[in-house]
Computed example of a mutant assay.
Amino acid sequence: MSATDLDAFLALLALTTQGQLPAEAAEVLTLPPQGPLNTHGPALCLTAQPRRGTNQSPIGALFASYPDWAATHPLAQANPHLTDILSRRALLVYGLAVDPQHRRQGIARALLAETENRSRALGYRMITLIHTPDLTAFYQNLGYTTARNVTIAMPDAAMGLTQPLPYMTAVKPLVPSVRVRHMPGAPGPVVSGLLPGWDLPVGARFVDGRLIS
């Protein structure tokens, strides 16, 4: 990625990330390309360029990597092995942006579809992202479940992901064994099957927002 493209990539992402883009993103983008799946080490960086014209600067951009909560959530901090597991099974899209003059042309949809295909090929089982409420219908039409509170079912525990207002979390399974369920008492949708053995047992329930298995 040239210096010009790097600046254009970051400028695009600044339109919609609301400060969510990791601070090291610019450094990651300067790494030599490392293959067709994860393009830059632990990160996936995709761009969309116009089909015609002499100006081939990016008009769409996407940055994805392992989710920050895989390391910062209290359950992960208490079990570093869990961070390694989650970072190889869940992918977080930190930023997705399209130039305002090129929106409503399917560019964002295409970038997300490419991300999902590459993630699935790498063995990821779920993709997630953070968005504002006005984009709820857009992501739901692409098969995402969106909510302010999302819970990941784990053996004998539950990992809650809660966004500060007004942000919401969107999740989408990449394999059939991962399911997003709505359960009575849960603060929001519940993801099960992220790893083998992470299914919800018969009789599992939520009481006061806590998983009882």
Rank of each mutant, 00 (worst) to 15 (best):
V178A: 01
Q18L: 12
L111D: 01
T30M: 06
L86K: 14
L111C: 07
D156K: 10
V178W: 07
L194W: 00
G60Y: 01
V28N: 11
V191G: 03
P187H: 00
P133I: 09
E114D: 14
T146W: 04
S192Y: 01
L194D: 04
A121M: 02
G185R: 02
T83H: 02
S177D: 11
L195V: 15
L91A: 10
T162G: 08
M154F: 03
L165Y: 13
R120A: 09
R88M: 13
Y139E: 06
R89M: 04
A158P: 03
T132V: 13
L44K: 01
A108I: 05
L15F: 09
R181L: 14
Y139T: 04
R109A: 05
T162L: 02
L129H: 00
A110K: 12
E24P: 04
L96A: 02
P42R: 00
P173Y: 03
A147G: 05
T17A: 14
P187Y: 08
V207P: 09
L13M: 11
A71I: 06
V191I: 15
L31A: 11
W69M: 14
V175K: 10
L12Q: 05
L200I: 11
S192E: 13
L6C: 00
P166R: 15
H131Q: 03
G185D: 08
L174E: 04
P133F: 02
L161K: 09
I85T: 14
S87L: 12
P80Q: 11
M159V: 05
R118V: 02
G53W: 01
A90H: 15
C45G: 10
H81F: 15
V28M: 12
P196E: 15
G193V: 01
L86C: 01
S177T: 13
S57C: 04
A76M: 07
S87I: 13
P80S: 09
A157L: 00
A23T: 08
T146C: 15
V190P: 06
S213P: 05
L96M: 04
E24Q: 15
L122E: 11
F206L: 02
G35K: 04
E27K: 14
P189Q: 09
D99M: 12
L29N: 07
P176W: 02
A25V: 07
A48W: 07
A137I: 01
L62Q: 07
L82T: 06
A23K: 05
E114Y: 06
P100H: 03
R104Y: 07
A97S: 06
I130E: 04
R205T: 13
P33I: 06
P42T: 02
P58Q: 03
A113V: 02
R120F: 00
P50E: 01
L194E: 04
A70K: 00
P201R: 05
D84V: 14
L92I: 13
L12E: 00
R109G: 00
Q77S: 13
T146S: 12
L15G: 08
P164Y: 15
T169G: 14
P166T: 03
T30A: 13
K172N: 03
R52C: 10
